[in-house]
């Protein structure tokens, strides 16, 4: 017994992957972390195992299909009790683009406890290594009987990024005109609009976002943009606070005083390049007052 404990203390930490019905993106990138020297999990003192019984860390990919569920839970139950569980990609956490399908039984947290999430679609190998690193920290802390540190300062860009990776979305409420095209084109349902007392609020959930950037492509004013921030791994307990949000405040119509969303200067510039003062005046008017100003009578 003694010898065994000592062996595991110095031997490699064993990783076991379970595919719950993924598009294979996360799985292929995990294969890279066992085949390509630059990203080899060996550098973290880990190696992959083919046996669930040996798993120190379980890596879960995919949205969990109904057909795969029993086998997934069987394999998971085979893994030792003190394993650390990592959800790879956004699918296990929210279902990603597959959410609400008749054939999907996620999110995974309904069936088993997750410790670390690695958002991405799929996460790049650097992000996978960072997430596995976070799992190792939890494992170490648990062994030492400590509470693992919650928010290590890791939001630093990778030194060797010559080209920016498609990372977290960023939202600039000042440029938003509340047209909601972003929500319309989002396959993953990652964007919500809510009308409040003071304005309209946008919330974008990074654990649902699949980092395709289509919202930004169709955004007429550049209110949504793709950042190069790919380092998004976090404790599973923080899954629901991984958000981007902002509020577009209402302003009174300069004609009648009704609360409206004024037209952002970005939209005027997109439409007119160099708007004249007459056009500028329109931006703070409600539709009825705009009609009054341009055609003399409000349309009914």
């Amino acid at each position: 017994m003694h010898i065994e404990v000592e062996e595991t203390a110095v031997g490699p930490v064993r990783l076991f992957r379970i595919n719950t019905g993924s598009c294979n993106g996360c799985d292929v990138e995990l294969a890279v972390t066992s085949a390509v020297t630059e990203f080899d999990v060996e550098q973290l003192g880990c190696r992959y195992t083919e046996s669930a019984h040996e798993a120190d860390i379980v890596l879960i990919t995919g949205p969990l299909t109904i057909r795969a569920r029993d086998e997934v839970l069987r394999l998971y139950a085979q893994a030792p009790r003190d394993k650390v569980t990592v959800a790879v990609g956004v699918c296990p956490v929210s279902g990603g683009v597959f959410r609400d399908s008749y054939a999907v039984d996620g999110p995974i947290e309904r069936h088993l406890p997750v410790d670390v999430n690695i958002p991405g679609c799929p996460p790049r190998p650097q992000a996978l290594l960072a997430g596995i690193g976070a799992a190792l920290e939890i494992r170490r802390a648990r062994r030492d009987g400590e509470e693992p540190a919650r928010n290590p300062d890791h939001r630093k860009h990778h030194g060797t990024d010559n080209f920016p990776a498609r990372g977290r979305m960023s939202y600039d409420a000042k440029a938003c005109v509340d047209c909601r095209m972003c929500r319309h084109v989002c396959a993953a349902g990652a964007i919500r609009f809510e009308a409040g007392d003071g304005g309209v609020r946008l919330t974008l959930w990074h654990n649902s976002c699949v980092f395709c950037g289509l919202c930004s492509h169709y955004c007429p004013t550049g209110a949504l943009s793709v950042t190069g921030d790919w380092r998004l791994d976090h404790r599973a307990a923080d899954a629901f606070t991984q958000i981007e949000r902002g509020e577009v405040p209402y302003a009174p119509c300069t004609g009648c005083g009704e609360a409206i969303i004024p037209t952002a200067p970005q939209l005027l510039h997109a439409a007119f390049r160099r708007p004249n003062p007459e056009i500028e005046k329109l931006k703070n008017l409600c539709p009825a007052c705009r009609q009054l100003m341009s055609i003399g009578v409000p349309r009914r």
């Binding site: 019905g21 683009v97 597959f98 609400d100 399908s101 999907v104």
Partner: peptide
Amino acid sequence: QVHRGMEHL
């Protein structure tokens, strides 16, 4: 095992 009902989605 990987049937996600995509043609329905």
